[in-house]
Write a protein that binds this DNA or RNA. Structure first.
Length: 251
DNA sequence: AACGGAAGCAACCGCAACTAT
DNA sequence: AATAGTTGCGGTTGCTTCCGT
């Protein structure tokens, strides 16, 4: 199948957005809502690719975007989530209200990747961002095989249904992925049941989970998988069970 | 003050997943 | 089921600003 380019590049503006373009885009989305990105530039009178409009809106113009420096708490959460999820920026951003995946990705690449792995950085003489492209390609977490990074697969979950708690599940939610309703605690289902734990992270209390760790104990926990705290270990097992079930469902 | 290198960040690109027909 | 169109994600690029000399 030959893919059509998302738009003709001819006659379109590129590079930085002007305040006028921002206003046109913002006004249009306020009036018509998000979506239909391909048609948006034509309808709004913008000389931009639809993809570019989407990116500009999501990363910069959206009213719920939090501007300003990343706080220490946010930074700590990013570090922990990255240790857990790897470069799943959209998932990480989903746990940081008002922050975008692009912002977190940039922040990681410019600040945290060097902070968290200074030795690797020094070893490769990564004196600048342009000169260490090869070093950047190496995920410092993955380079250490002892770190248990969960490779999740992002799945769009469209609806969340609320139900009363039952005895077998500590959560009160059922998650519907692709219009199929399933409990948010699929790891409790029998082995012979066909399980698709899509949407697992949707319901997982990440901040609560993370707050159980003190200082750098999370990294140690990633290494040996044992915190000595039954409550934390239980949460970890829940995470892993979701991943295992996901793998099993994927065949 | 001028210059060059480093750093930060917005924007672009390609691909894969998802959805519609 | 196959194909075409749309959306979302992660990697990368390149422009702008900062900072040291």
């Amino acid at each position: 199948m030959v893919r059509k380019p998302c738009c003709s590049k001819e006659g379109l503006n590129r590079g930085a957005w002007s305040p006028r373009e921002d206003k046109i885009l913002t006004d249009y989305i306020k009036a018509h809502g998000e979506g239909k990105w391909r048609d948006l530039p034509k309808n709004a009178g913008l000389k931009r690719c639809g993809k570019s409009c989407r990116l500009r809106w999501l990363n910069y113009l959206r009213p719920d975007i939090k501007r300003g420096n990343i706080t220490e708490d946010e930074e700590n959460l990013i570090v922990k989530l990255h240790a857990l999820l790897g470069n799943r920026w959209s998932l990480i951003a989903g746990r940081l209200p008002g922050r975008t995946d692009n912002e977190i990705k940039n922040y990681w690449n410019t600040n945290l990747s060097k902070k968290t792995m200074p030795r690797l950085c020094d070893d490769r003489r990564c004196s600048n961002s342009k000169g260490n492209k090869e070093a950047d390609k190496l995920d410092p977490v993955n380079e250490q095989p002892s770190h248990r990074v969960i490779r999740t697969k992002a799945v769009r979950c469209t609806k969340v249904y609320n139900l009363a708690k039952d005895d077998n599940c500590s959560s009160s939610k059922l998650i519907a992925c692709n219009d199929e309703i399933r409990p948010s605690c699929p790891w409790l289902l029998p082995d012979d049941q066909d399980i698709d734990p899509s949407g697992f992270l949707e319901d997982f209390d990440m901040e609560g989970f993370m707050s159980d760790f003190q200082d750098d104990s999370f990294l140690q926990y990633c290494i040996d998988g044992n915190s000595g705290d039954d409550r934390i270990d239980g949460d970890w097992n829940v995470m892993m069970a979701g991943e295992l079930a996901r793998d099993r469902a994927a065949g």
